[in-house]
Design a binder for these strands. Structure first.
Length: 120
RNA sequence: CGAAGGAAUCGGAUGACCGCUGCAUAUUUAUAUGGAGAGGAAAGUCUGGGCUUCACGGAAAGACGACGCUGAAUAACGUUCAGGAAGGGUUUUUUGCCCUUACGGCUAGUGCUGCAGAAAAUUAAACUACCUCUAUUGCCCUCGUGGCAUAAGAGGAAAAGGUGAGAAGGUGCGGUAAGAGCGCACCGCGAAUUUGGCAACAAAUUUGGCAUGGUAAACCCCGUCGGAAGCAAGACCAAAUAGGGGCUGCAUUUAUAUAUGCUUGUCAUAUAUGAAAGAUGCUUUCCGCAUCGCAGCUCGGGUAGGUCGCUUGAGAUAUUUGGUAACAAAUAUCCUAGAUGAAUGGUCAUCCCUUGAUUUUAUCAAGGACAGAACCCAGCUUAUAGAUUUCUUCGACAU
RNA sequence: GGCGCGGUGGCAGAGAGGCUAUGCAGCGGAUUGCAACUCCGUGUACACCGGUUCAACUCCGGUCCGUGCCU
């Protein structure tokens, strides 16, 4: 987890509700055991990231926050391998909470490979 | 010592490394350094306020809603404290102790009270049963104005039975044809007076003679309080696009004047001035409906987005004083999260606690309750592993 | 974050202090040569926990779940 910020490509957070909706409706989606990846090409040439954990996953706010923190950590580790110029949204599932951390990373890489956006 | 219940406090500790979000300082303006970073419930959004906007000349009443023993505390409350009353637990009983209570009024009015039961609410009703009188019939004998039983009728009474949540005070004695607060004693209830208490209320005395079944978490009456909505409140700055107002120019229709052209006209084009009378579409007419342009400048509203609101406050800690207490006052010290797709985390080490295993008093393994700020306070309610303190009750053992 | 509404059989849906209607679906029977339609019968419910009341699905308080609006 020792990721230096400088090595990451320039990226931003997705904040607006409308961005999430467009990615959901017009982008691609790939489901794995630990998480769900939604992505869509943007015209900005940078990577934008977002995270979704709904109340359906867990009623407790503590658990939802924990899932979000794990997703953030996974994103920080795998992001150098992702293609530029796309929006990525990670959706948490129930298994995200209990699945071993390395498996989560592999899940994300697998999703990227399946959507043909993985790069060495 | 153990168990149950009530109340209160705490809610793993220390260090290192790597991250995340504000703040301060420095400069290279995105980096470094420093320091800070969830709770007792941050939760539910159930009450009461601050604050903001809207409404409103002021006040009161009505309507609607909430609350309701008394006194105090508080900015306020449906909260808290102290007291009273009622109910429950414990105790052989009383006292005592502990727990609980939406605890004004059904003797202001109106309603409701199923089924069952004879009868369900002002002097109610009469199924069984009771008594008296009239009187039929039968039996008995001492043969009478007799006794016993009894169909029917008239009346008395509300004691007993059964129904029901509830049957119009309860128990006992007297009384009576049988009975009845009809009378008396005790108890319950109502009224008045006196005493104690700020009061709720309590006690005593006198008196009434039972009138007042229950239900107001039924309508309602009485008293008190309340304008409404909420930080996604609201204030400010302010793109793009669309639309609105104003100004200028062009365009459209028409009238007049002038000039030019040749086809010499009720012609065409251009310019100037005035008017907007109008034009187009819906096949035509009347009626009706719809639309009225283009470019530039400018004005204000306002969306996205941003900034503020935002954390110094009914503030925290300590001490003293007043008060039974809730709480209040004084003095000193301190500043202690402020995010916005939303930070507050992860790993390791040592210790603490729990569980399990090995076997033995140490090792190994797994784990650490409920739960995450979103404008801020005061409460209430709900969730909570474990630890500690304290009160009450019960049980066991010892003295 | 704030403000509201609701929870009744397998499904829909009334009721409202005194045994919870009705329709569809299910099951059994009648009718029919066999079915459909029709007729008859039948089983299964008031989200949960307390309180008020003689009596609560209904009234009151709390919990859980579902759902709408404010951007």
């Amino acid at each position: 987890m020792n990721i230096n910020k400088k090595e990451l490509p320039a990226n931003e957070m997705l904040t607006a509700r409308s961005d999430f909706v467009t990615v959901q409706s017009k982008g691609k989606k790939w489901v794995s055991n630990g998480l769900i990846l939604q992505m869509r090409k943007n015209d900005l040439g940078i990577i934008r990231t977002g995270y979704t954990v709904s109340k359906k996953v867990d009623k407790s706010a503590v658990m939802r926050n924990r899932i979000k923190r794990r997703l953030r950590s996974v994103m920080a580790e795998v992001l150098p391998n992702a293609t530029n110029g796309y929006d990525y949204i990670l959706v948490g599932r129930k298994l995200t909470l209990t699945r071993p951390y390395n498996d989560l990373i592999n899940d994300f890489k697998w999703c990227l490979k399946k959507t043909e956006l993985y790069k060495k």
